[in-house]
């Protein structure tokens, strides 16, 4: 599995806090049995109601791979459809003030990087990208830093997540299966699993 040590690309600024997964991918597009078309409907309702003024429709951000968000991004439902949608739209990394936990966990299992920055730095980064959307933004996973024209900013990636990404252990299934028979041994100790 790929070791993910960095993510680089152009940035896209999405302002606003508490952007929930229903907005990222409205539920009606989840009536399918694969994730294949999730990218087509990313933020669909928000974009329609913004009538072209949505960052995802802003030409200056076309092809951006890093999304810069505010607080509590990805809150709400546990749907992996949300990071799937963002990934299939083209994003590989997220920089925000904070992320909802399930969203961040889902990102990791897809090999997508979420890094948090203090709010002053988020604001500086936003301004810098808005002024110069062509610049390259780089997330260094091991250092938990964000590099841009606005300088190098110290961010945070939880240690467990960092470990998974840089050692290519983000596909949790294979990591969990390494435990082998220890799984059955633990299960054997738990009364309700064995019908009491």
């Amino acid at each position: 599995m790929d070791e993910i040590t960095e993510t680089t690309g152009r940035g896209c600024v999405m302002r606003g806090d508490d952007i929930d997964t229903d907005r990222i991918i409205p539920a009606r597009f989840m009536k399918v049995i694969t994730f294949d078309d999730m990218g087509l409907h990313c933020f669909e309702d928000d974009r329609k109601s913004a009538k072209g003024n949505h960052p995802l429709d802003d030409e200056k951000y076309t092809g951006a791979e890093i999304l810069v968000v505010g607080k509590n991004f990805g809150c709400g439902s546990s749907r992996e459809h949300a990071p799937q949608s963002l990934m299939r739209f083209g994003f590989q990394g997220f920089i925000g003030e904070s992320f909802a936990e399930i969203f961040a966990g889902n990102c990791t299992s897809l090999g997508l990087v979420c890094v948090t920055l203090p709010s002053e730095d988020i604001e500086k980064l936003r301004e810098s990208i808005e002024l110069d959307p062509e610049q390259e933004i780089r997330i260094d996973v091991a250092e938990s830093t964000v590099q841009s024209r606005a300088g190098t900013m110290q961010g945070d990636i939880p240690p467990g997540t960092k470990e998974q990404l840089i050692h290519g252990r983000w596909n949790s299934t294979s990591v969990l299966l390494e435990a082998g028979g220890a799984i059955e041994e633990t299960a054997a100790q738990i009364p309700y699993v064995n019908g009491y």
Partner: peptide
């Protein structure tokens, strides 16, 4: 609550 990759994890490994 978990995401779909974790549903896969549980199906495969509990």
């Amino acid at each position: 609550g978990i995401g779909t990759s974790q549903v896969r994890d549980i199906l495969a490994s509990q």
